[in-house]
Amino acid sequence: MYIASAKRKENIAEYLLYMWQIEDIIRANNLDIDKIKSNIIDKFDLNDDQRKELTEWYESLIDMMRRENVETSGHLQLNKNTLLMLNDLHHALLKDPKFDVYASEFYKTLPYIVELRSRQGESKLDEIETCFAALYGTLMLKLQGKGISVDTQKAIAQITKFISLLSKYHKLDQEDKLWDNQ
């Protein structure tokens, strides 16, 4: 919760990837708050109020996951909303000629997005979610100690560059500094 809050303010991409990881952590603990307390919450050096607050945050996420039927897969609506917001910003940036650097990075990334979609078959993911899925998948491979091919590393480097730029523009937009200063 504390990490998520900080990431949301500073870097929306890191926030979203972190929240996807939290969803998976909750699933790995079978949506059981007692397991989450012993495996996660108790590992932090927190005072009683912080511990209570963090426990309530996990409990609310568990409740949302159950109500939204994402206990085994999928993403919470709050995370889907973040993706929708980023996708809307993405399209607005592409339409505005003042953001030609952004458009250029997108078109450098697009072949990798197309390749990823072709590997997934009938993918219903939009471009931004495809990028995040690739970044998250790579993160999971690294955490598992699995190797990543040179081609994948090249693709992830470009996707990272593109998503970093989108995150930068999101932060400026949140600070009301994006559209006036271009």
Rank of each mutant, 00 (worst) to 15 (best):
N47W: 00
E115Y: 12
K146R: 15
I25H: 02
Q182Y: 07
F44E: 09
Y102R: 11
K171Q: 14
S73D: 09
T82S: 03
D24K: 14
Y18N: 13
L83G: 01
L61W: 01
I40L: 11
I159C: 05
K161D: 13
S38L: 06
A13C: 08
S5Q: 13
N69W: 00
T109H: 05
T160A: 12
L135H: 04
L54C: 04
D180Q: 09
K154D: 08
N79K: 01
N79R: 02
L84G: 01
T130L: 04
P97L: 09
S123Q: 09
Q158L: 11
Q153L: 11
K124R: 10
W20L: 13
H90F: 12
S167F: 04
Y15S: 08
I33P: 02
D45H: 02
K80R: 08
L125G: 00
A6C: 06
H90Y: 13
D34G: 01
F162Q: 09
H75W: 09
Y102W: 10
H170F: 12
K98M: 11
Y15C: 07
R119V: 01
E105N: 14
Y2P: 00
L172M: 15
G121L: 07
T138Q: 11
D88A: 10
I26C: 05
E14W: 01
N181S: 14
I36F: 06
L172N: 08
S149V: 03
L139N: 10
I40V: 15
D49R: 01
A133N: 12
N181T: 10
D63K: 13
Y112N: 06
L93Y: 07
D32S: 11
V101H: 10
L84R: 06
Y107Q: 13
L76Q: 14
E175A: 14
N87R: 13
I113S: 03
Q50W: 01
E122K: 14
S123Y: 08
T109R: 09
I148S: 08
L116G: 10
A103P: 04
K35D: 07
M64Q: 09
A157L: 10
Y136E: 08
P111W: 12
E23T: 06
W179A: 03
E122P: 00
D48A: 04
N69H: 07
I3D: 11
S38F: 02
L86C: 04
K35N: 09
C131V: 10
R119S: 07
S60G: 00
F44N: 07
R119K: 14
K146S: 11
E59Y: 00
L31R: 08
I12L: 09
S167N: 11
Y169M: 13
W20I: 05
S60E: 12
F99E: 12
S104P: 01
I22K: 11
E127P: 01
T82D: 03
N79A: 02
A133Y: 04
W57D: 10
E14I: 01
E10Q: 15
N30G: 03
L116K: 13
L83N: 06
K168E: 13
L89T: 02
D151P: 00
A13Y: 02
